[in-house]
Design a protein around this nucleic acid. Sequence first.
DNA 1: AATGTATTTTGATCTACATCAATGGTTACT
DNA 2: AGTAACCATTGATGTAGATCAAAATACATT
Lengths: 254, 254
Amino acid sequence: MKVMPDSKAIPIPSPLHQACEPFACEQCGVYRLCLPLGLHGGDMTLLESVVKRKETYKRGQLLFRAGDRFDFIYAIRGGSVKTSVCTPDGRVQITGFHVAGELLGLSALASGEYSSEARALETTSVCLVEAERLDELAQKIPSLQYQMMKIMSGQIRQDEELMLLLGRRNAEERLAEYLIGLSRRFAARNFSPTQFNLSMSRGDIGNYLGIAEETVCRLLTRFQNAGLIATKRRQVSLIDLRQLEAVARMNPAA
Amino acid sequence: MKVMPDSKAIPIPSPLHQACEPFACEQCGVYRLCLPLGLHGGDMTLLESVVKRKETYKRGQLLFRAGDRFDFIYAIRGGSVKTSVCTPDGRVQITGFHVAGELLGLSALASGEYSSEARALETTSVCLVEAERLDELAQKIPSLQYQMMKIMSGQIRQDEELMLLLGRRNAEERLAEYLIGLSRRFAARNFSPTQFNLSMSRGDIGNYLGIAEETVCRLLTRFQNAGLIATKRRQVSLIDLRQLEAVARMNPAA
DNA sequence: AATGTATTTTGATCTACATCAATGGTTACT
DNA sequence: AGTAACCATTGATGTAGATCAAAATACATT
């Protein structure tokens, strides 16, 4: 089993795709999680034709900002990205951490401008998909339309879960749930579900979960003392996933 | 300017639509906020043909539950509905209050079953749109596909806002924002933006906003004492919208 | 109209978590 | 290599809002 590369490594599947080659969705390690799922032969080639270009961002670089004109859906090939929104007075809420195979910018379709900002957490490679042409193409390829709807629907569902998390769960449950969620997503990408590297800071995690950075630290320490996990800086091992799930779901504090 | 009907009134546009007549989107007071937006003549007739049936629910009745098989998108004609999700141990989070022109069940597309439950808050009339046939139709009518995407995108954006609310704003800001949001939505439906009837209880509001029922009451009292609003039971008047917005957005507690 | 039930409101108390503060460990930059 | 900036951790203290409790009001049912 592969282990999640740490942020020093450049997480691009293979040097082949670095070249000016076409975008070869089929060669991309995560196409089954991405737009091309369910597409075949010629249709996939068509989809590749609306991929304007591929870009890589370094840690801290912006992919887009709230208010920017909406031209592209971003599909992550490798690396990770955080998205956030903010209040007029400057408070920031991170709305998601995104990894390979996930799409960014879906909320921009409604208004024609991005409503959130997206920033690379590590070296990150993305496909820029022309929104307008994707729309046209979806009209021609039923299974592409279906896949897009499914992805958006999935996003809505995921947001429902996050609301439940933010509204009804205590800090301990939130963090446990967070670690489990990461684990699942890594597993779906053939990374180890029990050993991985966090590309985001404690502060980012806390912001996302609606708790303070210090609380994240204290809870990680508590989980570690209870033998549920081991941490060394941003490297995390989930030792007792079963019990971690118990903390996330059935906390007696309920 | 019309005033929001209270929960005793039956909020159906006109007796005409009660009959077994076709579904006449064009006659529906909210079609501009709903799926048919952007559709013309024949296309609208086609859309009407995938409206399986129209139903009304009384206060407290379930439209669907989490886990039910996903067959229909529900479009609200009149009345209001709350949607909620819950933890395995029974805690509930209300994820939205929905009024005329809004769609329910969008998050079910991804998995084929509803992920949330929907319950009428007052007598409510809905169109049941066959999900599968709607999908097919969207392939034939580009502007319908576009409108569906736009609606889903809008939902995602709205959820981002709610996360910001739940994660970063204090109780006072949440409630002020909530009242303003209601006001806007009523305005878009040609109801008074300053005088309306809440179809949900204080407990529901608190649940949705992630605060206790008692806190909702205390804050409403505080707003009232400050001359921002007047309340009498579930009847609310927004007296100083400007200042209410100030509370929602620029609270110095930030 | 009367009775039972649910909702709203207000007050008193408690607590989970935020905030403030200080230190050591890592990483980035020149 | 050295230094600046950042990030993680732990402790001490404060507080927004939860929870508990109880009364007042409205609504539903007969």
